[in-house]
Amino acid sequence: MSSAPLFRFGVIADPQYADLEPNLALNRYPANSLVKLREAIEDFNRHDLAFVVTLGDIIDREWKSFDAILPVYEALRHRKHFLLGNHDFAIAPEHLGSVPGRVGMPSAYYDFGYSGYRFIALDGNEISVFAPPEGDLRRQEAKDLMKAMESAGALNGQRWNGAIGDAQYDWFSAKLREAKASGEKVIVLNHYPIFPDNPHNALNSDRMLALLAEHDHVVAYLNGHNHAGNFGVSDGTYFINFMGMVDTEDSNAYAIVDVYGDRLEIIGFGREANRTLALR
């Protein structure tokens, strides 16, 4: 086994900060996430990381919550990448179109390269009943999707899930082909899981899973959203659902991923598990 990783990066899922009383039924403590995030960033700053990615649900609700949590990230000495989740849109309607800009994202979905890898960051909220503005056709599309899924007995036809639209799907497909042509391995980032089968999966998880099955250079798919965490392997791709930072009163959850030539090593902190994932 090679002694040093090619590179390392940090992962945070679902800090879901808001100045709220705990939700004891769900064991979520939104106000405590500022302290947990500071702790994670202090830890990340002790390591040589290429970047840190936050897999969505930066806030629990309310536009003003961004004003409290985003300054905490300023202590991070590494490059940072954000994705958005469903809770990031639990805000006043006039702010819905401003969320990507508020957190400094180049756009709602994007990609970047690092050391022979292509990271593809998806906007899983595109087709949903919460992220598009009122009256947008994408809201109706989400309702139609959920209705069809309910009829089919699918677990994940839930109003807290979303899907990527056709244009984004085509972009995603093109990025996968480009990476293949360039000899890059791919890691996909999304707020929503697509495997294993779960009530939190993206509304169009089957379509996305089928697309990934066509590409043997997709190493891993990383997501949050299901705070309990999850893990699966399908067609040679690892599906890693990181645990929600917001859960529990004081135990944290975040990770560092070490990328080697022959494997990924996930180093879990707090409730997050350690994993060694051999690459094909």
Rank of each mutant, 00 (worst) to 15 (best):
I58M: 07
L84K: 00
L20Q: 12
A90H: 14
E265F: 15
L122C: 03
D57F: 05
A255E: 04
K180L: 09
W63Y: 12
G165T: 02
F51E: 01
D250G: 12
G153Q: 05
A220R: 02
N230E: 11
N45P: 02
P15D: 07
L83A: 07
H217Q: 08
S115E: 10
E94W: 10
Y260R: 11
V11C: 05
L155H: 09
R139V: 01
I187E: 00
F239P: 02
P132F: 06
D216M: 10
E265L: 15
E214H: 10
D235N: 15
L264R: 03
I240D: 02
L37E: 07
N223P: 09
F66M: 07
V11T: 04
L264K: 00
N161W: 03
I91R: 04
V257C: 06
R38A: 13
Y221E: 00
L24S: 04
L209N: 03
L76C: 10
N23I: 10
F51C: 03
P133W: 11
R280C: 09
F172E: 02
Q158Y: 07
H225F: 06
R46D: 11
N204F: 01
K175S: 07
D57A: 07
L122W: 05
G104M: 04
L212G: 01
R102Y: 10
E265D: 14
D262E: 13
W160Y: 13
N161G: 02
S98E: 15
L137R: 15
S234E: 13
V233F: 10
H215C: 04
A210W: 06
L34S: 01
L155G: 04
L211T: 02
N23Y: 14
G116A: 05
D48C: 12
R118N: 01
N125R: 10
V129M: 12
D247T: 15
A202M: 11
N161H: 06
P133Y: 12
Y221D: 01
D57T: 08
V259S: 03
D14T: 10
A108D: 05
E39P: 09
S2A: 15
S251C: 14
P106F: 08
E141S: 12
A40P: 08
V219N: 03
S205C: 14
I240F: 08
R102V: 00
N241C: 14
W160R: 08
L277Q: 05
G113H: 14
I12P: 00
Y221K: 05
D235G: 14
I256W: 04
W160S: 09
V259W: 04
N252M: 13
Y109K: 03
G101N: 15
I267K: 14
I120N: 03
L49F: 02
F269Y: 15
T248K: 14
